[in-house]
Computed example of a mutant assay.
Amino acid sequence: MENQVGKTKDVGFQFGIRKTFPVSSEKAWDFLFSNSGLNIWLGKLKNELEIKKEYETENGITGIVRVFKTNSHIRLNWKLAHWENVSTVQIRVIGNQTRATISIHQEKLLNDVQRTEVKAYWNEIIKKIGTELLR
């Protein structure tokens, strides 16, 4: 069996991206969970984002928030409208008063096609986050 990029033994395919920005970790976190930030990485919400509650965006992403630890990370189920499966996304902010790394990790992807799809999605999202965060 040949190794495939992003394939894990236990959770299907995965993708991760991280980028460091010249802002405090608190500023990065606050931005990600502001209306502007949420609209970028998740989409415009139809309801509030709450722990252990289902959410839905206007662009058809659905899921449940599993873990929310302020100024640290969020872990949520994440499903695109055209997918049959549910994946898991974790966004973490790591840093200090002068630098923040935003780390996005997605797992439980069905195959390399989904991995390629989310890779393009998150690469675009991290660029948009950078543009808006550094304004």
Rank of each mutant, 00 (worst) to 15 (best):
I64H: 00
E107K: 12
Q97F: 09
A81R: 12
E107H: 09
S72W: 02
V67H: 08
I94N: 04
G63A: 07
K79G: 04
D112F: 14
S87T: 14
N77L: 13
K119I: 06
K69A: 09
T98L: 10
H105R: 06
T101G: 00
R115T: 05
T116P: 00
V86L: 09
I104E: 02
K119E: 15
N111Y: 04
Q106K: 08
K69W: 02
Q97R: 08
H82L: 12
N85V: 04
I64R: 12
H105C: 07
E84S: 14
V65Q: 01
N96Q: 09
T101W: 00
D112T: 11
T62Y: 06
V113N: 09
I102D: 00
L110K: 14
R99L: 10
L110F: 02
V86D: 10
R92M: 12
Q97A: 13
V89H: 06
K79E: 03
V86K: 09
I64D: 04
I64E: 15
Q97T: 11
N71K: 13
I102G: 01
T98C: 07
G95A: 09
W83N: 01
V93S: 00
T98H: 11
W83F: 10
R66P: 01
I94V: 15
V89F: 06
H73F: 15
G95E: 06
R66W: 03
I102H: 00
H105N: 11
H73Y: 12
S87E: 03
N77T: 13
E117M: 10
V89D: 10
F68Y: 15
D112W: 07
A81Y: 05
R75A: 03
R92F: 10
K119C: 12
D112Q: 13
G95S: 08
I94D: 09
I94G: 01
R99K: 13
H73S: 06
T70I: 11
A100V: 03
R75G: 04
S72Q: 09
R66T: 05
I74Q: 02
V86E: 09
V113H: 03
Q97H: 11
V118K: 07
D112I: 11
E117V: 07
V67Q: 12
E107M: 12
K119V: 08
A100M: 02
D112E: 14
T116R: 07
T70K: 11
G63E: 08
V118L: 05
N85H: 10
I102F: 02
N85L: 07
L76N: 03
V89L: 15
T98F: 10
N111D: 15
S103P: 03
T116L: 15
R75M: 11
L110W: 03
R75I: 12
R99Q: 13
A100C: 04
T62A: 10
V93N: 00
E84R: 08
R115G: 05
T88Q: 13
L80H: 14
I74A: 06
G63V: 06
I74E: 00
V93I: 05
T62R: 13
Q114G: 05
V113S: 04
T101Q: 07
N71S: 05
I102E: 01
I91E: 01
R99G: 07
T101H: 01
S72I: 04
V113W: 03
Q106V: 07
N71M: 14
I91T: 11
S103H: 13
T62C: 07
I91L: 14
S72K: 12
V93P: 00
E84D: 11
